[in-house]
Design a protein around this nucleic acid. Structure first.
Lengths: 268, 268
DNA sequence: CTGAAAGCGCTTACAG
DNA sequence: CTGAAAGCGCTTACAG
């Protein structure tokens, strides 16, 4: 491949000018810019990202740190982030901390990020304090999704309010015997969301003056399988709920599967 | 952060020696190596990957190119590749070409890879000829998964043999009225697998002298939804199959869902 | 608007 | 076994 000097020679300018022209910086005459663009196209020139990173300190890469890549929710977050980053000219460094057990498989190491990325996106990941400190020390922006973390921007929904709204919707439709399928967070992830969502459910029920018996609140695994189990359990009751609020999409998938299982008499 | 020169000064050696010692290269005395390691640890030194890439030409990054990140099969491939690469000290650059339509959303561009990765892993992706040529030109190794591609290593299973084996297993159990749920490949992916798997089914049936009527072979979408639809269709028949061979895990998920739908009389 | 030159921070022959 | 020096290929003040 050609280097910037080849383009400079071909265009009859300095490498500094080529650099400016190609990056669309101001203070390059239109005519010069065009000559450079033509020469670059002719030479099929692509700037070496490693060289420009070294010189500029920018990498054009954003780390996306996830606890699991295979789960529905995270896969969709990755897809969305990846698409948006690409639209803005960024590359994605995928960091899968792969936690399927109680202890995280991988501890975040500063050499995963150091001088390698311009920023990091941390998805619903529960981090050890020293990991947080390490990420902070690296000096690039960190945005977390789902888990508020002091000092970092965070994108999340109002967990309490969202479930409250869903519950109120059902109450508005006339339901009174509403069940809630919530549960335990996945090992490596945020742990406030499950509790907050249950709080939202209870708040809406309380506001409506509806009782919440123990059987109405299921504490399931935060997965389709957990939802399936909880759903079957609810359906096996003599007196079933007339509606169910589920704390997450993935658990809802499981509850819907339960509803499809054969052998249930029609509810109501 | 500290630079290699700081470590060299602290250890009383040249930067060349620091470089060799830290990377475990031979021809460094044990004593010198230890001094360097101590000095590096003391300074919390981490080599700048962009600088070492520029000097060495190696990036320590492997591109993982996928047509979809959210589908079960691809998510698992990504997770597996990512884990294995990390174990070997490589980082993962995720390239999601995101195709949900007939035309690919993104065309592979050489600037996604140029001087950015040491190799690429291409997962079941159907590429345009010019994309293949472009990847070849970049001069790093490419390994494809699922789709054989001239000149590249490829990891795949024996599609014909695998389904033949599955079918023979059912035949061995005494089944004769066996259905096959195969289908159309996803837009951006390989297109030989679906055909090959159907071939394996038909071959096994033919070898056993069993007829294959039209209704026994479903041509569904290569997704859980496709499997669900095909499965329901089979279950609605007066004379059902006694066993079903499904061409992919994702379609099988759908067929299993169909089997769980209420309202079916027990088969047999 | 443009260029000469320093600098980013390593690695790698080449000598010794 | 170790070091001096060139080189990887850009970007960025600084001058003009």
């Amino acid at each position: 491949m050609s280097r910037i000097e080849d383009v400079a020679l071909a265009a009859g300018v300095s490498t500094a000018t080529v650099s400016r022209a190609l990056r669309g910086l101001p203070k390059v005459s239109a005519e010069t810019r065009q000559r450079v663009l033509d020469a670059a196209a002719e030479a099929r020139y692509i700037a070496s990202p490693t060289a420009s990173s070294l010189a500029s300190g920018k990498t054009g890469v954003v780390a996306v740190v996830v606890p699991y890549v295979t789960r529905w929710y995270f896969a969709h977050l990755i897809a969305g982030a990846s698409q948006m980053l690409r639209e803005h000219g960024y590359h994605v460094l995928l960091v899968d901390v792969g936690d399927e057990g109680p202890g995280r498989e991988m501890l975040l190491d500063s050499r995963l990020f150091f001088k390698r990325v311009d920023a990091a996106l941390v998805l619903s990941l529960r981090m050890h304090p020293q990991e947080r400190e390490m990420l902070g020390r690296l000096g690039f922006p960190v945005v977390s999704v789902g888990v508020p973390s002091a000092g970092w921007s965070c994108v999340r929904i109002d967990d309490v309010g969202a479930i409250r709204l869903a519950t109120e919707h059902l109450i508005g439709l006339g339901h009174e015997r509403i069940a809630f399928v919530g549960g335990k967070p996945l090992p490596a992830t945020d742990f406030t969301t499950p509790g907050d969502r249950e709080t939202g459910f209870r708040a809406a029920m309380a506001d409506a003056g509806l009782p919440v018996r123990d059987w109405q609140v299921a504490n399931a695994a935060w997965t389709p399988a957990g939802g399936l189990e909880a759903g079957l359990s609810l359906l096996r009751r003599r007196q079933r709920p007339t509606a169910v609020v589920v704390a997450s999409d993935e658990m809802a998938i499981g509850v819907l599967s339960a509803a499809r299982e054969p052998g249930h008499r029609r509810a109501r």
